[in-house]
Simulated scan of single mutants.
Amino acid sequence: MTRTITAEQQAFVEAVKDFVRRECGTRERRLELTGGGTRTHSDELYRKMAGLGWLGVAIPEELGGAGGGMVDACLFLEETAYGMAPIGGHGPARITAGVYQRFGTPAQRESVLKRFCEGSVLAISMSEPGAGSDVGALTCRAERTADGWRVNGQKTWCSNAHFADSILLIARTDSSGDKHQGLTMFHVPAGTAGLDIRQIDTMGGREVNDLFFTDLELPADAVVGEVDHAWRQLMGGLNTERLILAAMMLGTARRAFDDTLAYIKQREQFGQPIGSFQALAHRIADLATELECCTLLVYSVAAQVDSDPARLLPRQASMAKLKVTETAKRIALEGMQMMGGYGYATEYEMERHVRATVVSTIYGGTSEIQREIIAKTYGL
């Protein structure tokens, strides 16, 4: 795929590829690292990557990172996803780290970001049973107390909360105005009294959780950013969140494509490789073209972010998330179809690619929401 990157960045890509190939390059090794596939995250592997300085590739050097930019982060996310590295905690943690980097106090940035670079997993909790795409409808409430804040309510679909070191909570602190006002972010350390985490079983295994807050007490300095202005802070981080998700799915899409291509080249029916039949060859041509478009889009937007990190790119970031996740889903489903029954069998990875790509069009803002955002940037 076409990526305009420096020689140093290409060397970084090769180093990541080599590491992933050695450490988790076989299905057997990945199963070993994940308890037979029951977990999405291997702390052992993650800590090794932290030791190489890769987790903080886009975190400032003074906070323990490598001082790189969004292009560097996308390269790491894409290559680890392509290699199917079991580091399911990284994407959400990288999104959450970005919030602390932009809006945290000096003490929060010093503590949280340094621990992130060292292998700490972070989670962010927005969705509620009655507030998914409509984040402004959330009702989990934080009320002021003499010493800080008291939180009560329920959250859901919180990725990785069951093994995260801390959770970035978005709660309602004022109901008197517009629903997008009166929201505040809070730093909630793991194990805080009053927090009950219950895992949700899904097609992808146990990745997400329900969170129940019952009189959970937080100190005044747990606020991240400004009280009542979490919505504005969330909007300021959308470039990062959507690009992270797009880069991850770009890697998965590439892997699904390559797995499909390898299969149809060696699988024979009617005396010849099935890839030689025009019906499949033309599908591959279309998918390869779409994949090339996705690569160009992701790295174009990443480069724009690096050229002006403060600039909001709602149209471009939403386009990247929409285009890549929908293309990844199409590639995986087409791959399953071309592989026939083997695509559905768990001894092959295609069924996992399908599960991973289908849900990618839902989390981080559904495809429908991305289309709404893009349309609004055109005055519609």
Rank of each mutant, 00 (worst) to 15 (best):
M1E: 12
R3I: 14
T6R: 01
A7H: 05
E8Y: 04
E23F: 01
E23T: 11
R29Q: 13
L33G: 15
T34N: 08
G37M: 00
H41P: 07
G51M: 02
W54H: 07
G56E: 12
G56I: 04
L63Y: 07
C74E: 13
L75P: 01
L77G: 05
A81N: 08
Y82H: 11
M84P: 10
I87Q: 08
G89D: 09
A93L: 07
R94W: 06
A97P: 01
F103Q: 05
P106E: 14
P106W: 05
E110M: 00
L113E: 02
M126L: 09
E128K: 01
P129H: 04
G130D: 07
V135P: 02
A137F: 00
L138Y: 01
T139N: 05
T139Q: 06
A142S: 02
E143P: 02
R144E: 15
A146P: 00
D147P: 01
T156V: 10
W157Y: 14
F163V: 02
D165A: 12
L169S: 07
L169N: 06
I170A: 14
S175C: 06
K179T: 12
Q181G: 15
G182W: 00
L183Q: 10
A193C: 03
L195G: 08
I197F: 06
I197R: 01
R198Y: 06
R206K: 13
N209V: 04
N209F: 05
F213Y: 05
F213D: 04
L218N: 12
P219K: 07
D228L: 02
A230L: 05
W231K: 10
W231R: 10
T240N: 09
L243Q: 08
M249H: 15
M249S: 10
M249G: 03
G251T: 12
A253Q: 08
R254S: 14
A256I: 06
D259Y: 02
L261V: 15
I264P: 11
F270R: 09
Q278R: 07
Q278I: 15
A279S: 13
A279H: 06
A281H: 09
H282D: 15
H282G: 14
R283L: 08
R283Q: 15
A285W: 00
A285P: 01
D286P: 02
A288V: 11
T289R: 01
V301T: 12
Q304I: 10
S307W: 07
P309R: 06
R311M: 10
L313V: 12
A317W: 06
A317R: 12
E326D: 12
K329S: 05
R330A: 15
I331E: 05
G343E: 03
G343A: 07
Y344M: 10
A345K: 00
E347P: 07
E347D: 13
H353Y: 13
A356V: 09
V359Q: 11
I369V: 13
R371Y: 13
L380D: 14
L380E: 12
